[in-house]
Design a protein around this nucleic acid. Structure first.
Lengths: 162, 162
DNA sequence: GTCCCTATACTCGGATAGCAAGTGTCCGAGTATAGGCGG
DNA sequence: CCGCCTATACTCGGACACTTGCTATCCGAGTATAGGGAC
């Protein structure tokens, strides 16, 4: 099991977008530049986020991306599901209904016990991700990061808005 | 994010092995036959289980596989980690340490906040999987399955042991 | 000085290659068994 | 009748192709802006 690399990028991008003034927009190229990421591929993740309604794209010359709603209303789960898809990680193929011991489908009223455990685990996973918002992450970054790094970030952002 | 198909097979195989008498062994071909699975590929998963010490392989003519320890001591997490690997699903590439706002590595004492959330979610996922054992699954199957299906399974197992 | 028009440059969006990991399969090494042989 | 030896057949184990999905990239469509010109 392995999450795509783009998940990390998308979450960080949302955190960075959370500090952009609401009347501005940050182009994808600037976002990629801030994290030293390949801009062409990051654009793919941003498109997924825009399609999910998490960020909105502003076309035109001074365009770019901005958050579609307050950062406190965007959970990490929202971002992960937008990028990675909302399909469950465990796919039950109902192999218990095959083979020499199989009987008619009407004899399996409850889902497979294996699948129930797997899905419960995924539910717990989602629950933790849904408990943290982009705003929470932003607060954590501002308290953890060194003052020098924050100053550089502010300077860079003023440059980018120019 | 997607789990491999083999996880489902491996768990079901362990449940089936849990009902094999301790002085016998079930060949991989029989296991595959019971679930109508490609035997050659199932063998791969069984080898992973054997390598992790969950099941033991008995070579020779009347050989096969059997559980290495009581079913109550084998958690679903054990099986999943054996087949899927124990690497974390989320890989943090520390992109916060790159870009124009980056400072020296000594200024990042705590792990990245994004990674902390992701790892906490995975920990919750593992916790649920570790709370269920193969024995629990076997009990669930025997109570849920229809009597007809159980009778057929017993008959088939007697045939296989012949 | 103000308004409008046009050309521009910059933005996103989807369509397009490359690659790694998962999926599926095969044949060879090793061993307990079954049968035959000798005592 | 009993023990030993050999040949066998069956088992696992690792090495080998193929396919799907992730990774990475590009160029075209669309739009707000900036500048220039007319009034």
């Amino acid at each position: 099991m392995q999450l795509g690399e783009g998940v990390e990028w998308a979450v960080h991008a949302c955190v960075l977008l959370a500090v952009v003034p609401p009347d501005q927009a940050l182009p994808a190229a600037r976002l990629a530049e801030y994290h030293e990421l390949p801009s062409a591929y990051l654009a793919k993740q941003l498109q997924s986020l825009a399609g999910a309604g998490i960020i909105t794209s502003v076309p035109g010359r001074r365009g770019g991306y901005r958050l579609a709603r307050p950062a406190a209303d965007i959970t990490v789960l929202d971002v992960v599901r937008a990028v990675e898809g909302s399909a469950p990680a465990f796919r039950c193929s109902e192999i218990r209904q095959r083979g020499p011991a199989a009987v008619g489908p009407e004899h399996y009223p409850k889902p497979c016990g294996v699948a129930r455990v797997m899905w419960a685990a995924e539910e717990a996973w989602r629950s933790v991700l849904a408990a943290t918002t982009v705003h929470d992450l932003l607060v954590g970054v501002t308290t953890d990061a060194s003052p020098v790094s924050i100053r550089r970030a502010v300077t860079w952002m003023q440059e980018a808005a120019r």
